[in-house]
């Protein structure tokens, strides 16, 4: 990479006891007059993750489980309520000068879900991609900027002529390519991708996923990939963390997670994926819905929907404990009440 960056040998990103609460209370007057209580959403409630260099770590979960909040915490769009985010051994919460912060920020970028909302409609594509180059002072002359933008456009399989167009002239997939080019402009090491393909059609999704994997190989990128689509996660990830109501319930490498899921919630998620192989087969639908994060259930948050829950699960909150390389937060697994389950998939 361009700058002389002190690289430590530890994980690239480390989240320690990360929490983020949002205050969604009614206004003060309403609280006083109508005696409404304060309401706090525990969007992220204590998460520990380590992401190694060059790997793709995915977070999966249903809407409202806090996975996007984690993404925003990692890049610093939100500050944590508690806990810390460390990037390459540096605590992001430490006070630094703007210049020092900018050096760290350059090394991480984000790709957002909606390519229609994340590009300024009044800027030409050239300027959108050149912005990080200018902001971080990565090029000295206009010629240098132009060459760099053209190089980036080529890397995401667009042409130099596309630079003079506006975002509305592109399809969703092409726009997501522009977002990727913009993210790569500052030569980052770490990309946070928040549902980068969920707004796209499957054939376009395949193009973008292939491109992301090619770029990762070419530049040695590390990804934090947020998605609700398990098949996509299986395809792109090295390790996977499953989230439920602001907490991690299971972390494991991709193969183990999909072949030997431990946590009942992970098993449930895997049961519910509609898969092409399941033609005509009846999925076992799971009862219940994700409870509100304002009032999460006591004990294990999953216990109201869990077929293996007992009294302990209702009272005591399970913590992540390591198990054969992965880690699981479940009393039933810990007590050995839950038999191992091997899953086989038709190789597709």
């Amino acid at each position: 990479m361009a700058d002389a960056v002190t690289t430590t040998s530890g994980p690239l990103v480390r989240l320690k006891g990360l929490k983020r609460y949002f205050d969604v209370s009614p206004p003060l007057l309403a609280r006083v007059i109508e005696r409404k209580p304060r309401a706090i959403v525990q969007a992220v409630d204590g998460i520990d993750i380590e992401i190694a260099r060059g790997e793709t770590f995915s977070l999966v979960g249903e809407s409202g489980c806090g996975k996007s909040t984690v993404a925003r915490l990692v890049v610093g769009l939100y500050g944590p309520t508690e806990g810390s985010v460390e990037f390459d051994g540096m605590d992001m919460q430490e006070r630094r000068s703007a210049a020092e912060m900018s050096v760290i920020r350059r090394r991480m970028q984000m790709i957002f879900q909606d390519p229609f909302a994340s590009l300024n409609p009044r800027w030409r594509v050239f300027d959108i991609i050149a912005e990080p180059i200018r902001a971080f002072g990565l090029a000295n002359s206009t010629d240098e900027i132009r060459d760099r933008v053209n190089e980036l456009l080529a890397q995401v399989r667009l042409t130099a002529a596309d630079g003079s167009k506006y975002p509305h002239e592109f399809s969703g997939g092409q726009r997501q390519r522009i977002s990727i080019a913009r993210a790569l402009a500052s030569k980052p090491e770490f990309l946070v991708c928040d549902e980068p393909t969920s707004a796209l059609d499957v054939s376009v999704q395949a193009q973008i996923l292939n491109l992301m994997m090619d770029l990762q190989r070419e530049f040695g990128l590390t990804y934090l990939f947020i998605s609700h689509n398990l098949a996509v996660v299986y395809h792109i990830s090295t390790r996977v963390g499953v989230m439920y109501l602001g907490r991690l319930v299971e972390v494991a490498d991709t193969q183990s997670l999909f072949r030997r899921p431990r946590h009942p919630y992970t098993r449930m998620l895997l049961d519910t994926i509609p898969d092409l192989e399941m033609t005509g087969r009846q999925r076992a639908p799971v009862a219940g819905e994700v409870p509100s994060p304002i009032n999460p259930p006591s004990g294990c948050a999953f216990h109201p929907r869990c077929p293996h829950a007992n009294e302990r699960c209702k009272v005591e909150r399970p913590n992540l404990s390591s198990l054969d390389g992965g880690s699981v937060a479940c009393h039933a697994v810990e007590e050995g009440r839950l038999p191992m389950e091997e899953r086989t998939y038709a190789a597709g």
Binding site: S171, G173, Q174, V202, S203, V204, Q205, A206, Q207, L209, N210, M213, N229, L230, A231, V232, Y234, H235, F258, L270, I273, D275, L276, E277, T344, Y345, A346, A347, G348
Partner: peptide, 23 residues
Amino acid sequence: RGLMGSIPSIGGHAERLTQIDGA
């Protein structure tokens, strides 16, 4: 055929997804 190939499936070992170029 292209559409089916572009759907990521769990259990597959394909390094790359089949992609239909263009839009």
